[in-house]
Each structure stands twice: as C-alpha cells, then as structure tokens.
C-alpha cells in the first residue's frame, strides 16, 4: 500500500471511530439522564454536612420533596433557630425563599444559578441539573471494565457555568459515581463523588454524595434518608401557600 493510501485510510478510520465514540457518548449520557431522573417524584430526609478547610463540621437537616425534575421544596429542620427556612423551585427558574422568623416569602432572582445553595458547595445549578442530555453533549473519552468516562460540554446556546464536566459512569447501572467540574478557564474547581449509590424499587439514587470545592478547600456531604419514590406527591405541595403553612 502506498503511503498516501495509508494516510487516507487512517484518517477515515479515525473519523469513523471519533464519530462512533461521539454517538456512543451521547447514548450513554441519555441513559444516565433517564436513570438519574427516572422517578416521578421523591421524598426524603436530607442531612447536609459542611466541612471547612480545617475539617470542622457543621450539620444541617432538611426535608426534601421533588417532582417531575423541576419542582422541588427543601425545608430546613435543623438547626433549631433556622427551622422552617425553605426553598421552593418551580419550572422556569422560579425560586422562592421562605423565612419563618419574618413570615415572609421572597422571590429569588434566577441568575443565582452559579451561587452556592445555602452555604453548601452545591450551586443551584448543580442541584437542578439531572437532564444532562438536554444541556450537554458528551464524548466518550475512555472506558475500562467498570466505567465509561464522558466529557460533557454545554450544547451551543446553552448557558452553563462550567466549561466542561468529566463524568465517570458505572457500567452496571448507568449511574455516575464521580463528576469533575471545570470552570470557564478550564481549571478543575469541583469534584462530586457519589459515595454510596443505592437502589429502591427500580430506582438508583446517590444516598451519600460529597462535593468538594478544590479552590476553597471546603466540602459538603449530602446524605439521603427515608427516601421514598413515586408516592404521588400533589402539585399543591409545590406552592407558596404550602411554603408558609408548614409548622
């Protein structure tokens, strides 16, 4: 075979394999998204552990209700003097905050997506994204016996605060157990580890998740307890009226 032909062939095969891997990446991501957002609704108790650079821990407890991916209430139950502080998220980037001490509901501006949620290392965006395939395109960059490693980049026109995410997806259940977040400058800033992935009914979920902010050397652990899926939560639950009434 001539040299030229060799080059042509290798280019073709390279293109082919790239295209193939692209398609495969997308496919995996789609599977991931449907795995992560499979339940119709969810109810759980949440323990949030804030760990500072010196290893000091702060605890918060909350209860969480979620429905149809975009409706969510998180209400803090501990510490006692912050009991009742609650967030309500509704479709269309609408967020409300309720402060029981003032009995007041305040709308929160939508552009806060890249600010931290309640002092944790999760941003509002981190908490709200589960339909990854809607916002990101994926490349399969490598795989081994147990994992696929995807590189996620925001689709054109989609505004995200990360330039890319590297997602390690388990082959056995399509659940990601590690996500690395890169900022706009392309530096790794945060790492999410799903330390314990459990199954209830047919659903997989991250029972223990740890988000590390590498820049601030601060991390947040979220532990889910008393999780229940598909308990037919009413839409009325996700209203301002309900936000206030809780005692």
């Amino acid at each position: 075979m001539s040299r030229k032909a060799l080059i042509v062939v290798s280019i073709i095969s390279l293109t082919f394999s790239l295209a193939f891997s692209d398609a495969k990446g997308e496919k995996i991501l789609k599977q991931v998204s449907s795995t992560v957002s499979a339940p119709k609704d969810m109810k759980a108790k949440l323990t949030i552990v804030l760990i500072d650079r010196k290893g000091n821990k702060k605890y918060r407890k909350a209860e969480m209700y979620a429905k149809e991916d975009e409706k969510r209430i998180i209400r803090f139950t501990e510490p006692a003097d912050q009991r009742g502080i609650a967030f309500l998220s509704l479709p269309g980037d609408i967020q409300y905050l309720y402060m029981p001490a003032f009995k007041k509901v305040r709308r929160i501006a939508p552009h806060i997506k890249n600010t931290k949620f309640a002092g944790t290392d999760f941003t509002y965006e981190d908490l709200s994204t589960s339909k990854y395939d809607r916002d990101y395109s994926a490349d399969l960059i490598r795989e081994n016996e147990t994992h696929w490693v995807l590189e996620l980049t925001p689709k054109p026109g989609v505004k995200k605060s990360y330039s890319k995410m590297i997602m390690h997806v388990r082959k056995d259940n399509y659940y990601p157990d590690k996500v690395e977040f890169y900022d706009k400058n392309g530096t790794l800033t945060k790492v999410l580890e799903n330390l314990k992935i459990s199954r209830q009914k047919e659903y997989w979920y991250a029972e223990v998740a740890l988000m590390k902010d590498l820049k601030e050397n601060h991390s947040t652990k979220m532990i889910l307890e008393e999780v229940s899926f598909d308990s037919n939560l009413s839409d009325k639950l996700f209203t301002r009226r309900q936000l206030i009434r809780w005692r």
């Binding site: 510490p79 003097d81 912050q82 402060m99 029981p100 001490a101 003032f102 002092g119």
Partner: peptide
Amino acid sequence: VMNGHYTIPESRDGVANLYFFIENEP
C-alpha cells in the same frame, strides 16, 4: 434586603434566619 430597614431584628430567630444568607461566606 429582607424587611426594608437597616436594623438588627428583634428576635433571635430573626437574626438566625438572616445568618442563613451569609453563614458560610469566607
């Protein structure tokens, strides 16, 4: 921001609620 006047809230819960905003800021 929450209530429209630059004062310390009257109650301990009020203070604690406001701390919620800034608690983990450096």
